[in-house]
Nucleic acid binder design. Structure first.
Lengths: 178, 178
DNA sequence: ACCTGAACACCGTTCAAGT
DNA sequence: ACCTGAACACCGTTCAAGT
């Protein structure tokens, strides 16, 4: 599964290949089908584990510091790390781009990842803005999630991690991100 | 080419198929190879025309109104229109996600699209901030480009155009977008 | 339960052959 | 110049057959 995850993060869901995974781990492609009957099953399992791992990491980050600014620095660092790892992207970000081709079971997990992120960001924003309306905070959380994903996409598209950093800095300068 | 463009905007570069295009326009896949020897040639031609068309549209938009706020409303509307058209995405946004698999000639055009957009956004921002440093304006322009692309990606991933609108509204509320 | 090789219909690409 | 059918090595998927 970790071999498959790295493949998707580098080339997307469509390019994920049973034969390639088999070559990498030393089994036939048919034997992988025994564990994951369809590509959708494999993709959903990957996205599920990815979301679960991410969720744990975010909880840990929030537990470490109740400061919104520090949390957001840590959050951006997670997305930055993917780029550092061979110009890879967030697994779910790439899958979102291929949304039309995703089986339903994968879509469900992609949706869950977005929910987990927006919910966490809402909590972080709430640390600062106790008085702001809940809807406005949630919309800002969604906007931050989208903006950071976009920064990752653009930076990857140029193979230049400095573009990611510049975008994040500009988001902060504008006040979008604490 | 317009058939191919719609295919990429819906399913990405990887899913673009000579055989499918042939079926759609009534010729064999081999005959399309006569006009576009490789998939990279076709992809580059698509991205080039896409960038050229977009460039013209942006120039026209800026010529119509020298107001930064109105220009940005028009700019966001262009990205919104892609979502309205069967939940499609910006051709180059999708290609960026598949960057690792793109031939060099396609990458060149993808880069050019980003350049054209950032340059235009820089001009629009300059309408308002005559005193701000040029670097800061350029970084904000890049951030806006990334943020709007991210909003499109997230909204498409949920099949919910309201998410795009909410993100744009939040960008504006934060002051990222005029 | 886990794995395999072979088959099927797909893909991009090539090429000899047609008009 | 433009198009075609057939071939090649790829893909996900299926399945009978092995341990």
């Amino acid at each position: 599964m970790s071999v498959a995850r790295l493949m998707v993060q580098a080339h997307g869901y469509n390019a994920l290949s049973f034969r390639e995974i088999g070559k990498e781990v030393g089994v036939s492609s048919a034997s992988i089908h025994h564990h994951f009957p369809t590509k959708g099953d494999l993709g959903a399992a990957l996205a599920q584990r990815y979301t679960d791992d991410g969720s744990v990491a975010l909880e840990k980050l929030l537990a470490t510091s109740k400061d919104a600014h520090k949390c957001m620095t840590g959050y951006a660092a997670i997305f930055r790390a993917a780029l550092l790892n061979d110009n890879r992207m967030c697994l779910v970000g790439l899958m979102s781009a291929e949304y039309d081709d995703l089986p339903d079971e994968v879509r469900t997990e992609v949706d869950r990842f977005a929910d987990v992120n927006v919910k966490w960001l809402t909590e972080v924003l709430s640390l600062r803005k106790a008085k702001t309306g809940k809807d406005a905070i949630q919309h800002q959380a969604l906007a931050i999630y989208a903006a950071i994903g976009g920064a990752q996409l653009v930076a990857r598209g140029r193979g230049d991690i400095a573009m990611f950093d510049r975008a994040i800095t500009a988001y902060r300068a504008a006040g979008l991100i604490p």
